[in-house]
Design a protein around this nucleic acid. Structure first.
Lengths: 342, 342
DNA sequence: TTCGCCGGTGAAACCGGTCTCACGTGGCAT
DNA sequence: ATGCCACGTGAGACCGGTTTCACCGGCGAA
């Protein structure tokens, strides 16, 4: 392993000049630069990023904290972030935060703090004010994806509005007995995504003057989750809803599979709408509100880099609300004019 | 930001002693250690890992190169690796290698080389001898998951054997017109996974003395991919196979959905078997050969860490073949005694 | 009593870069 | 002629730790 001093010696210049030539900072004569580059190539020299980081204080490394990897939305966000970072010459250090409080503390107290990363992207993690403050005290730019965090710039869809829109779509089709299948309202890890989607749903329902006594079921955010709850909920023809607003497309698809298994036709006897724009949605003909998680990742990186490169600029602490697009497919249709039970 | 010297001053000791006290290396008096720890806590001190890495040459950071994030197998492997690494106090730097040759070169020539990582885990990436050599020349331990790479320890299921087993299961049920839906045989990125599965399939077929004229279709490794090919292949009752061995569970599930859409009963008119143990397999009643990608990730990390911690030990260059377990569900059944066309 | 060793500590070298500063040039405006 | 500035280069401080080495007190063995 050759070091800068070797390169400098071979090229017949000083360390300083070699450094300038290779990093491209400061004045270097054209021929000198070429000599240094030749020497570096000959020796197979590459900078030690640790050494460089030590003196500059910058690591060109961004931490991503994320609660899941194996779920469509999160994997998609992660891919977007990764692509954008590598394009910009940054490394991505991945921390998956499970519900384990202890692990979470360790990541914040130990891992994020050791001057290893320049910035942090938090995907759908509801950071506590203390955690935010800690990172800010360290001077690390921070951006959130998937929900609003006070005091830091973040990026997400408008969950309340999206849920309302989805529900209104069902209502406009004449549905009254609508069920929302969503996530655990009290989940600590995620933002208030689940509760926000529920509240958007509620708002649409009450605005329409409808009363539903049993309007919510909790499900795991996965196809299996939707399937399980779907079976449980669709079994009884007397209490069965005529439409379901699922908290995400995976749940919606699970519900559709369950319906099919029970011999219920969709949308004939049951309308289903989801949120996400999952690639499977098209295949299943699922009506959904499309968001673009990959693009959110890319935009988050842009936000971060602009903070990183011009530290002078005031940190924009606004929350960007991204639009979702209602994509109507064949899983939703007008409620039959004659409801089954009079 | 406090530095070690501050801690030392507050504790009334030298930098050396402070360092020893905090890192736990070398002799330190019991009360001295406590004083130093108190001082560190008071100042909110944390080591600069860059500074530490510079002198020790070790970063406690492992690079993972992986071709996809948003696919079940890969996400699962990644989760396993992440969990194992963080438990061991290591960071994980993620590089997603797309088919972009240029990006791939950049990752190898620029990112992996800068002394940022201690080791590399390559997930289903068919490293060229040159790439392997480069990493080895850098003294970076390397382990592969998902396929064999010459000269480095790796970890995978036996793709040939697994495919053969799956196919034999179908044959033993009396099927003769069997189709394999798998991945692109020439894909450069992945190992020879696709071609190995095909060859295991072929071996079982020829061993059974069966001849099939149209025995392979290529599909994207996803539910949609399986669905599309499934529709194309199941449409014509005259040429339709009676059984399908899918290259992975996603494809198998896609095929099952396609079959259902065409009104074909599974397993009545079509048997389907997959490979993976995808969580959806249980829900769809899919017979499959179960592997455990998460566990593979964990084991890979173990292998790596043992190389890292005892550099003296000779690098084990053996390839570990993991077993897969045939899990029979309801998607496979005996071929009807009277085939439709005489 | 003396020697050797062990636990405990500090001074200073060192890891491999970047960056400031000082010190040249030469060209152009004053 | 003088001053100033743009360009080009080298010496050396510095980033924040770890580690070597030297040193010291005390205690058991010779």
């Amino acid at each position: 392993m050759s070091i800068l001093a070797d390169v400098a010696r071979i090229a017949g210049v000083s360390k300083s000049t070699a450094s300038r030539a290779l990093s491209g900072r400061g004045y270097v004569g054209e021929d000198t630069r070429r000599r240094v580059e030749a020497a570096a190539a000959e020796l197979g020299y590459v900078v030690s990023s640790t050494a460089a980081s030590l003196v500059t204080g910058r690591t060109r490394n961004v931490a991503v904290v994320i609660p899941y990897i194996n779920r469509w939305y999160f994997a998609e966000v992660l891919e977007g972030i990764e692509a954008a970072l590598i394009r910009a010459g940054y490394d991505l250090t991945l921390y998956r935060l499970s519900t384990d409080r202890d692990l979470r503390r360790r990541v914040f107290d130990y891992f994020l703090v050791r001057k290893r990363v320049d910035a942090v992207i938090s995907v759908t993690i509801d950071l506590s004010p203390h955690e935010v403050q800690m990172l800010q005290a360290l001077g690390k730019p921070l951006v959130g994806i998937g929900g609003r965090i006070d005091g830091i710039p973040s990026l997400s869809i408008d969950d309340v509005e999206t849920a309302r829109l989805a529900t209104e779509h069902l209502i406009s089709l004449g549905h009254q007995r609508i069920l929302h299948i969503g996530g655990d309202q009290d989940e600590q890890m995620d933002f208030r995504v689940h509760s926000q989607r529920y509240s958007g749903f509620r708002r649409a329902v009450t605005d329409a003057g409808i009363t539903i006594d049993d309007d919510f079921r909790e499900a795991d955010f996965s196809i299996e989750g939707g399937f399980t709850v779907g079976l449980a909920v669709l079994g009884d023809p007397r209490t069965r809803p005529t439409a379901i607003f699922a908290g995400c497309d995976e749940i919606a698809i699970g519900v559709m599979v369950a319906a099919r298994q029970l011999g219920l036709s969709v949308p004939g006897e049951l309308s289903v709408i989801g949120v996400d724009g999952h690639p499977l949605a098209a295949m299943f003909g699922l009506t959904t509100l499309v968001q673009e998680p990959g693009g959110q990742g890319v935009r988050a990186v842009d936000l971060l880099l602009s903070q990183l490169e011009h530290a002078d600029a005031p940190p924009p602490d606004e929350h960007v609300l991204l639009p979702t697009a209602l994509t109507v497919r064949t899983s939703t249709a007008a409620q039959r004019t004659a409801p089954r039970s009079p």
